[in-house]
């Protein structure tokens, strides 16, 4: 076999704990792609990786903290953002990135998410949305589309899913984007921008879960990717209120929000630590 070799060093090997590879993600799962986009974005962003912490919660996507060869923190279920907020407040010089799943960030950890966004803590939150609780066997989650079949909704989901970009925007996030794992280049670019962005940045990455979700909805992984390709409507700057998940009318992707706002630490320091802030002393 010309032009290929059996044992080589992958360019991302320096950022992953290769002794833990192969990872647990199933064949056809999209988490690995989002993870590799994230690692490429980390490398390209040029931030000091020795000063970077990756925090994740529980679930398939939560395993990412265990595979990344940086300081990382695998926290309790749903509490990735509180841990990350603590890390950021204890040492504001660190770049803190939360990498977790939709069930972790928006079902059990939903309140933590909205309050971190409201406070505008300087975090980057990457949410891998696979529309289901994959690790526990494909139960209906807060993000499962209407009428989708899951183990707990065998005739179709009667509930409506969260519109995550709208939720993030309404809560006060300063950067909101959504891509699918198929749009890996745009996703990488968005993650890079979000890492460099000061303030609460949120990225939703849609990813197939062939075992938990695809199997019950008669979608092979490649079919799911074809659906992403057909149904994607790329609309940067779109109103997040229109970006609800409905595969019949199409999935709106793009960078929705990119605004400037003082972070919580900026405001806190200006009020409670004015001695550290020379501008305020000058003004006084």
């Amino acid at each position: 076999m010309k032009n290929s070799s059996l044992s080589n060093k992958h360019p991302l090997d320096e950022l992953i704990r290769t002794d833990r590879i192969p990872h647990i993600w199933c064949p056809g799962c999209g988490v690995g792609t989002v993870f590799s986009s994230f690692l490429i974005a980390l490398r390209e962003s040029g931030i000091d990786l020795k000063n970077t912490v990756v925090v994740s919660g529980i679930g398939c996507s939560g395993r990412a903290a265990g595979y990344v060869k940086l300081d990382s923190f695998h926290t309790t279920h749903g509490r990735a953002i509180p841990f990350a907020t603590g890390i950021k407040l204890a040492n504001p010089d660190l770049n803190v990135i939360v990498f977790s799943g939709d069930g972790d960030l928006f079902a059990i950890g939903g309140n933590h998410f909205i309050h971190a966004a409201r406070r505008n803590v300087d975090l980057t939150v990457i949410c891998v949305n696979n529309f289901t609780y994959g690790m526990t066997g494909g139960q209906a989650a807060a993000t499962t589309p209407s009428m989708a079949k899951t183990t707990t909704t065998p005739k179709g989901n009667s509930e409506s899913p969260f519109n995550l970009p709208h939720l993030a925007y309404a809560s006060g996030a300063t950067y909101v984007a959504r891509w699918t794992m198929l749009h890996a280049r745009d996703l990488t670019e968005a993650i890079k921008e979000a890492i460099l962005k000061r303030g609460f940045s949120f990225i939703e990455a849609l990813a197939p879960c062939p075992t938990g979700y695809g199997r019950r909805n008669k979608e092979q992984p490649l079919q799911t990717l074809k659906i992403y390709q057909e149904k994607a409507i790329i609309k940067n700057g779109a109103n997040p209120a229109e970006a609800d998940i409905d595969f019949n009318k199409g999935i709106i992707l793009g960078k929705f929000i990119d605004i400037k706002k003082p972070t919580w630490l900026d405001t806190y320091n200006s009020i409670y630590r004015p001695q550290d802030n020379s501008d305020i002393i000058d003004a006084a």
């Binding site: 090997d13 792609t33 590799s36 490429i40 990488t188």
Partner: peptide, 8 residues
């Protein structure tokens, strides 16, 4: 390289 979930 980007889309491969396995770094393979």
């Amino acid at each position: 390289e980007i889309i491969c979930p396995e770094f393979a």
